[in-house]
Amino acid sequence: MVALKSVFLKDLALAYRQRAELMQPLMFFVLVITLFPLAIGPSPETLQRIGGGVIWVAAILSLLLGMERMFRDDFADGSLEQYMLSPTPLYMIVVVKVFTHWLMHIVPLFLISPLLALFLHLTFDMYVALMLTLLLGTPLISFVGAIGVALTVGLHRGGVLLALLLIPIFIPLLIFATSAIESASMLLPYHPQLAIIAALLLFSVALSPMAIAYSLKVSQN
């Protein structure tokens, strides 16, 4: 437990000391969403119709932008080798690292999203649905994305390959999340979509740590 806490605190300290880098995905997210109303016009109906999808696409792309960093520094400076040789199993360490990464990237996104929802004229019901889908869907992106990051950590300029690997995997999530927001806009229940996203999340939390740990070992090899 002490070991896992220290991984968490170390990653928090490192994120704090690289605040500028941490801001890049958030700035990207904000810029994409503020530019959309300017590009397609201020019509509330149009903005409301596409709002949920725009926020979700921006969230996926901004998360992908920051994802490359997840294991990069640890791989470069040899901390990853030391994690592998520690008495704590690697899959437990990667759970903490993925959670910390999600916390660092998603909490700011949650904090700023009410303002962005206003830009896109989302109703209160749509906003609630958006928050719930983001809450369940973004950890899924982090856990599944971390497998791709672990596989490409040893490659130089692996960012494009990472995006090509991961974006097709996130399409089902995008469909269910936007469908939930659309249902909310029509005041229809959206529990089934949330249940499917939650099931995908639980499935990924259960299995991906092993896959991430194995991928990191392959990359080290």
């Binding site: 002490v2 070991a3 806490k5 300290a13 520094d73 400076d77 040899g78 030391q82």
Partner: peptide, 20 residues
């Protein structure tokens, strides 16, 4: 196996905790 952004003391403290 040491992070460039952390101090010597922090690096060794984290390493000690991770390796019991």
């Amino acid at each position: 196996g040491i992070s460039q952004l952390l101090s010597a003391l922090e690096n060794l403290q984290f390493w000690c905790q991770q390796h019991d």
